[in-house]
Write a protein that binds this DNA or RNA. Structure first.
Lengths: 274, 274
DNA sequence: AGAATAGTGTCTATCAGACACTATGCA
DNA sequence: TGCATAGTGTCTGATAGACACTATTCT
């Protein structure tokens, strides 16, 4: 049973078919977009939660989200799914669009997940730089919104199935940590190696050997993924050199920015430095 | 703007709120489920496509799929998203449920992707064992359904945005190849090492060194992921030993069957075999 | 000067890629 | 007996983990 379900046994041209198409013959679900917004502050992984002001789950914590805006006609179909997520993100954080990494996690559509009516939600994950995190105002049309330590979130106490969405986004984040440049969205534009390591540690939930991690970063620099940035990180102790992520590294065959799964043929051992 | 969008400024109990909830005040999208069904036959990666018998895109090739069945009330909300995908898969292939690996890829919801009305689709990926592939009858409620070589599919000629869904599923399959046991759904229950290598090669689109691949499989055997199965593969040439995937290997801390990302502390060098 | 943190080097085990080689069973 | 394919072994370079060590700069 393919796409053509709700229709008469049409034997007409496509034009007249579309004109005669009766949209709402079968019940449709509502579609919402929910955003799991992460940041790292004080070496702790945080997620943005809002307190619901209305039923259902009134008073409970929930992920920011809202209904997909659907247009009234075949010509005006409303906003793209990704645009809806970007809109929610902007509304909820007050941060300018494009300043935050946003990516779809998947759809969650178990029957009964919303007691009101059938709702399918599409979950997104967003990564906010720690430098931007304090700028997030407490919710646009806001109930008290706030950064909450992911460790301390009681999944079962979240509204709807948001505990599942949170864990899904977290799993995605963890797997991306090792294989994509997504992490660099969770550090300031320039960052020291220990700072970057702290982010890795808090996302993975384990500690990492400082020396080995340094070697890893050194390779990224050699490969042009990272570069040394001017200045040093001012700390109460010894200052550290800072690095920055090199944007749009090299247009790969596919156009997909790869994060060097392929090791360089032979890594140059020629140490330019000293 | 969280979940509570379509409602009056309720100040009532949850019960009366739900009773008074008017479902269809805002336009809702249709939700469909499309399934990218892969198999490997004759050392070639195939996808199951159907030819559309109705508008829109009548006569074009498309992925099997259909509308999510939504119930009429808050109490009866219809089928789960995953159930809808399993239903479509069963309808379209005639294969018994549970015999095929099925997994969600993600939601695709650009406005205008269906000319009839707003449709958000949730894409799934399915892996059919080559032994089952010939049993797939040509479409349940069928237009001519058939296995099509993925290489030869003209993405732009597929209905809707199905070219994008196909590539999305393919990308997922490729990334899973190296890191999850999903591949074992694309070989017969028992398989020789060269057979398994052929599947890897066709999915990756590159050749693999036979010797190195062998070492890799040997490690999987040592780690109990695979085991030697009785019998040999009959071929016109030298017969090969066959292996099988060990189901439910070891209940991991999370309950998620991991495919040894973690190398064994120290691999036993004690060769039992001679 | 002392202490804390940044940064370096070394040793070992794992693993992929390249490639030369042996073993086996059918025509 | 020849040969295609199954299967083994070896060398090299990349990398992670463990850990000892040096360097710098603030107090």
């Amino acid at each position: 049973m393919a796409k053509s379900a709700p229709t008469r046994p049409a034997r007409r041209g496509e034009r007249s078919f579309l004109d005669g198409y009766e949209a709402s013959r079968w019940p449709r679900p509502s579609v919402t977009v929910d955003v799991v917004i992460f940041t790292v502050v004080d070496a702790d992984l945080k997620v943005l939660l809002v307190r619901r002001g209305e039923h259902p789950f009134r008073g409970k914590l929930a992920l920011p989200g809202g209904f997909l805006r659907v247009g009234p006609s075949a010509e005006d179909q409303g906003e793209d799914l990704d645009d809806a997520a970007a809109r929610e993100l902007a509304e909820e954080t007050g941060l300018p669009r494009g300043s935050v990494f946003l990516e779809q996690i998947g759809a969650f559509g178990a029957a009964g997940r919303d007691p009101r009516t059938r709702v399918v939600t599409v979950a997104y994950s967003a990564l906010v730089r720690p430098t931007l995190a304090p700028l997030v105002r407490a919710g646009g049309d806001a109930r008290s919104a706030g950064w909450t330590s992911v460790r301390s979130v009681d999944r079962k106490e979240l509204a709807f199935d948001h505990g599942i969405l949170l864990d899904g986004a977290l799993a995605r984040l963890r797997s991306q940590l090792e294989s994509t440049p997504a992490v660099f969205e969770l550090v300031p534009e320039t960052f020291s190696i220990p700072e970057l390591r702290a982010v890795f540690e808090v996302v993975r939930g384990t500690t990492l050997d400082a020396g080995n991690f340094r070697k890893r970063v050194a390779r990224l620099v050699e490969d042009g993924i990272l570069e040394l940035a001017p200045g040093k990180r001012v700390t109460p102790r010894k200052p550290a050199r800072v690095y920055r992520f090199v944007r749009a590294p090299l247009p790969t065959p596919d156009g997909v920015p790869t994060s060097r799964t392929t090791p360089k043929a032979t890594r140059d051992k020629g140490k330019t430095r000293k």
